[in-house]
Amino acid sequence: MNKEFIEIRWHGRGGQGAITAAKIVAEAAFTSGYAGVVMAPTFGTERRGAPVMTSLKISREKIYDLSPIETPDIVVVLDHLLLKEADVTSGLKPGGIIILNTPMAFESYSFKDYRLATADITAISVEAGLPHGMVNTGIIGSLEKAAGLLGIDILLKGIEEEFRTRKPEKNSMAARIAYERTVAGG
């Protein structure tokens, strides 16, 4: 993966917080010296529960092209049920990374051309003391374990900052546990 320019596509459901997760990563990237970050949610009419996408581009230089990501380096899937509803691997570069929140075992999936990373973020979040279904902070830990982009500490700090009035320690705990437990394939 070219660490000068990275494209990440997030698949979630309306109301699940994919945008917040992408924003935390964007802020951390910007602070780390990536001058160009662009984050765009699905454009249009949305409702709670509907499949949505968020795109995040990270670059050492300012980004001028705001058009949708066509060939992501990484896809983040916040809910394994989305695998049936959306073509999450569409355009994913060969050797690209899939980060998947799933209760099923890593071995039960076979994504031939890609590198998979799984964790049961739903369960981990509850373990960290968060309400059921709040997976958008835990997933950041999985992303870092699988892609090793920015360093877990700066991301945990970003999570605590974003959630400073809403259980910051529990949210960063979810990310920390996910970071430790994520199974990432080679």
Partner: peptide, 8 residues
């Protein structure tokens, strides 16, 4: 579309 998938 298959709006049943939106259900929470």
């Amino acid at each position: 579309g298959r709006t049943g998938s939106w259900r929470v």
